[in-house]
Amino acid sequence: MMGGNTANKPKLLVSGKRVDGRGVEDLRQIKIVARVLNDADGSAYIEWGKNKILAGVYGPSECIPRHDQSLYRAIVKCRYNMAPFSGMEEHGRSGPSRRSKELSKVIKEAFENVIIAESFPKTQIEIFVEVLQSDGGTRCAAVTAAAVALADAGIPMKDLINAVAVCKIDGEMAVDPGKEEDNFGESDMPIAFSPRTGDILLYQMDGLLTREELARGLELAKGATEKIRKIQVDAIGKVYAEPKEERFLVIK
């Protein structure tokens, strides 16, 4: 996967500018709208560059099947799904695949660290993430949107988390890789932080990095995570600044 088709590899970094004109520390444009669905307990829609992702949260509700339920805490469930029309490659019929199962698992585990599940014994909290359009970094955008949806549902959490990826392109570390940089870059490393404590909740890596590059990557991701949190907070604040009786998915 790393390196893609090297024959077609474009120049990813030309005098400090990336393929889409960003600098190495710049994020793509991120827009979040909270509370977009009428019947979910909490929801959010995110546009992160060309990624378009919808997140819905249900719960706490009775845990089904009952052999999954715990007398001590709520069970967190997550389903990450890519729509068949979401990307350049064939995604076939939407449904569980090796990739979507993995992402569901890592997103679930990131949220298990922040949701205060002990308050709701015998229940489940379900997070649904639907990727409508993908352009690299969907797992990070999914975590970011799902955190807003959980906050919107009023589920008690220790922090409002988000995620961002860092990559190595043409030998240099950069934040938030797009699809080209993901496919042709040397390394890709998604990280979810808890902005309050700096704890790492999701950490994956594709490709190779030296220790120094890794440290630089963490530093870049940490800077980005603060920026993303501001966007999340604004999105939630907007729900209350402009109260609506009906919920619509309108993005300006």
């Binding site: 922040v114 906050a151 008690p156 922090d159 409002l160």
Partner: peptide, 10 residues
């Protein structure tokens, strides 16, 4: 004192 909106983790 004005009441202020807080987020999880604030």
């Amino acid at each position: 004192m004005e009441s202020k909106i807080v987020m999880p983790g604030d």
